[in-house]
Amino acid sequence: MTPRSFVAALADVQLHDVFNPYRDHCELHDLANAPATRRKNLRDYLAAVESLGTDTIWMGRDLGYRGGRRTGLALTDEARLPMFAAYYPGFAPSKATKGPSVAERTAAEIWAVLARLERPPLLWNVFPFHPHDADDPMTNRRFAARELSEVTDLNRTLITWLGIRRIVCIGQDATAYAATFGVEVQCVRHPSYGGVTEFRQGMQRIYGEEMKPVEASPQAALF
């Protein structure tokens, strides 16, 4: 498996009421070449992760309409795009949408912790697309079991290909699913809906002394 073949396989997936950022174009927000831009972003990101020898995934549930739907990168909003080069050498993603960059609170919390680590994880989701309510694309909903079945083989391929040894689940939705891949699984509270403090404490518990002090992080102001 290569970044190009993996992203091409993702781009082939087409589901009803699911926005696939690697094949679909949002008429409201996207630039004309947005799907191609997001495909390149993900290819380059996976190549950088592979070069780093990253063996840990932080796994969320699915892409949100303010974050990964726009960027094509899990747990990442447009406000975080300029930070990638500092933590994933050789990777500088491009913005795929029109207008000002959009920020997302979950992405801010994720990146505030990531910025305190010497070796960053692969950011990924159980369901790597954006499921939305029927006829309302700017909403978030939980994926259905039949939708998840379309990507399980791809997730398994990703984990095997990159030699992933640990999955840190961001929220309970990912926990049972991650356990099926035969790697170490740990779970922290999702930072949304009042879970910020428990999320930070959970990451501190997992990483302990591996985490740099807050003042050493470029995102210290978020803590």
Rank of each mutant, 00 (worst) to 15 (best):
P89H: 04
F91A: 09
F91C: 15
A92E: 14
A92W: 00
A92C: 11
P93W: 08
S94W: 03
S94Y: 02
K95M: 03
K95C: 06
A96D: 07
T97W: 01
T97I: 04
K98A: 10
G99C: 09
P100S: 09
P100K: 05
P100A: 13
P100Q: 05
P100T: 02
S101F: 02
S101G: 04
S101M: 04
V102E: 06
E104H: 08
E104M: 01
R105Y: 08
T106F: 10
T106C: 14
A107L: 08
A107F: 07
A107Q: 05
A107H: 02
A107N: 04
A107Y: 02
A108P: 00
A108W: 00
A108L: 14
E109P: 01
E109A: 15
I110P: 10
W111N: 08
A112G: 14
L114W: 00
L114P: 09
A115K: 02
A115T: 15
R116S: 11
R116D: 08
L117G: 08
R119Y: 00
R119V: 15
P120E: 05
P120K: 00
P120H: 01
P121Y: 05
P121E: 05
P121M: 11
L122H: 02
L122E: 03
L122Y: 03
L123I: 09
L123R: 05
W124Q: 00
W124N: 06
W124V: 01
N125H: 10
N125A: 12
V126A: 13
V126C: 12
F127K: 01
F127P: 10
F127C: 11
F127L: 08
H130Y: 05
H130W: 06
P131N: 03
P131C: 09
P131F: 06
P131Q: 03
D133L: 14
D133H: 10
D133F: 10
A134Q: 12
A134S: 14
D135M: 07
D135S: 11
D136M: 13
P137S: 11
M138W: 14
M138H: 11
T139A: 11
N140D: 15
R141H: 06
R141M: 09
R141Q: 07
R141F: 09
R142V: 10
R142Y: 13
R142C: 07
A145Q: 13
